[in-house]
Design a binder for these strands. Structure first.
Lengths: 210, 210
DNA sequence: AGTTTGCAGTAACATTAGTTACATTGTTCT
DNA sequence: AGAACAATGTAACTAATGTTACTGCAAACT
């Protein structure tokens, strides 16, 4: 198991820290679709993502969802970082986008390592930084783009994340994640199909050249 | 000067750290409207906000702006935190919303203190956490609210930040920050006035009960 | 095979937001 | 005062998005 750890985090952490992570961390496999964190949850351990992808969602008062961003291997969840320390609740929902493997590190270690290892501090800071930048990108999309452009970005990203030219989503699911209605998505997808950029099928979409 | 530092950050930092901050930090006053950071800037020092408020803006390719959030006393700019370490450029613009006072801390200290002082680590982590939460709130507004609701939130926040029931903005300025057109803002403001929630004047708006 | 269910296609319409154009009213400058 | 300018008010229109309602089709179930 230490090998996977080294593959994904070896360039970041020194051998000693890798050892520690391997000792105290527990490996965990999650299946696609599994809910890994819910809004309001208290977090007691920190996940380091070894493989797969996690999608991070936000929800409003009416239960409407919005996709914020994806986490990929080498990432961690910024939310847990201070939830752990600060005893605050999660503001977001995390769901496995694909099957995924992760290492769960106990909360206490996080702060100890932050004092002990410079590389750990760097990792934590950079994680925050990356999450912030993803949030900026998300805000750009919502604020500056129209729905058709957001849809194209969504399809590209979804395809990239799953390493598959087929996006396995229904129109309704896409509508949820972009926070719009199914009819709107169907309409825009049909336009993309007419432009020969995608091909529509039941339950999946083939990405051609977008 | 050490007194102001203690007032705002005394509950966070131990005496020794306060001393260090006071020694290496330089106090700086900025006037309302001053541009404190531009998109693409490299950041070489970290600001701790003593008084006043800073607005943080995002810009798209066409030069259209969007207000992200405000920083208030006791806050710091999350962007600088890793820009300093990572040598990356700023993704945002910072403009003094009111006259403000801040302490500029040299970059190098930031990492040194992170290893040395637990309270500093806590502060930095919490800063990130707060910024992330503000980003969530911003995304909620953009994604889930209609323009009239966003406008009401904006006016409330603006009034709160400046501690003034009068918002000194033109319709055009508001339109920029909410990324819409002046006509739309004028229209919605007029509705709010008809609902007796505000009173419109040239160059300013009186907040009554929103 | 027949029924039920979920997904997708589409028309028709409502609402919200963005755009253009122009009038009106203060302010500032000379 | 008169000219020039900035801010606001409003109408009329367009575009984008959201909503309702109904259709056909495919998969799943009995």
């Amino acid at each position: 198991m230490i090998q996977e750890l080294k593959n994904n985090f070896g360039h970041l952490f020194e051998a000693e820290l890798l050892q520690e992570i391997n000792q105290v961390g527990t490996y965990k496999d999650v299946a696609e679709g599994a809910k890994m964190m819910e809004i309001g949850d208290y977090v007691r351990s920190m996940p380091l993502l070894i493989s797969g992808a996690i999608k991070i969602l936000r929800e409003d008062n009416n239960g409407d969802e919005l996709l914020l961003y994806f986490l990929e291997k080498g990432d961690t969840c910024a939310m847990t970082l201070t939830c752990c320390l600060g005893e605050t609740k999660s503001e977001i929902r995390a769901i496995a986008e694909t099957d995924a493997t992760l290492i769960m590190v106990p909360v206490q270690k996080m702060e100890i390592w932050a004092g002990k290892y410079k590389s750990w501090r760097k990792f934590v800071f950079e994680s925050y930084h990356n999450r912030l930048n993803e949030m900026f990108a998300t805000i750009d999309s919502i604020a500056f783009l129209k729905m058709d452009e957001r849809l194209v970005k969504y399809l590209k990203e979804k395809s990239r994340i799953s390493e598959d030219r087929i996006v396995h989503s229904t129109h309704q699911e896409i509508a949820y994640e972009l926070h719009t209605s199914r009819v709107v998505i169907s309409r825009l997808l049909k336009k993309l199909e007419n432009l020969n950029k995608i091909t529509l099928h039941r339950n999946y979409i083939l990405i051609k050249n977008i």
